[in-house]
């Protein structure tokens, strides 16, 4: 099955690269090609219609948004999509029009990492208070009062 998906992805997006570090297939894709690619995956015969985890990792030199997808028809079928972003100006197209749950998850990533999701219907802070300075889950975030360092 993984081979099928790999073949399909290389057909629709020749620039995508694969890694098999974890248990599931990882696909790296450029930010400007991401949105059409995501919607093609959603409507493909594999039907990746269940976005169960959306997060971001700060690699100090760049940011990576990570999308964990599955198919509701076959929940054993999972795929991980990674989008590398520029750390100083992270921008990626929203997927909240493809998977509705992304709206909330993207708002969380927006406030915690400062990633701007283009065309997001309602990009505001969700968990942090309004006007909070800095991006708490980035590695260089410093809060001398509330942060405990071990």
């Amino acid at each position: 099955m993984t081979e099928d998906i790999k073949q399909y992805i290389s057909e629709i997006q020749p620039n995508a690269t694969f890694e098999e570090t974890g248990e599931w297939l990882n696909v790296n894709i450029a930010a400007n090609e991401f949105h059409p690619f995501a919607s093609m995956l959603r409507n493909s015969r594999f039907q990746f219609d269940y976005l169960f985890c959306l997060t971001c990792v700060d690699w100090k030199t760049h940011l990576t948004t990570v999308y964990h997808l599955s198919s509701s028809q076959n929940r054993g079928l999972n795929i991980v999509i990674k989008v590398k972003l520029d750390r100083n100006d992270p921008e990626v197209e929203t997927v909240s029009d493809i998977w509705r749950t992304a709206e909330f998850h993207e708002r969380e990533v927006y406030e915690m990492f400062g990633v701007t999701f283009l065309n997001h219907p309602d990009l505001r802070t969700l968990i942090l208070e309004d006007g909070f300075q800095g991006y708490p889950l980035r590695k260089d975030f410093e809060d001398p009062i509330n942060m405990i360092k071990l």
């Binding site: 169960f52 985890c53 997060t55 700060d58 509705r100 749950t101 909330f104 998850h105 969380e108 889950l137």
Partner: peptide
Amino acid sequence: RIKFRSPGFSNLSA
């Protein structure tokens, strides 16, 4: 990095 995908968060989004 650790991310907890909590069930309540997604359920609340609906």
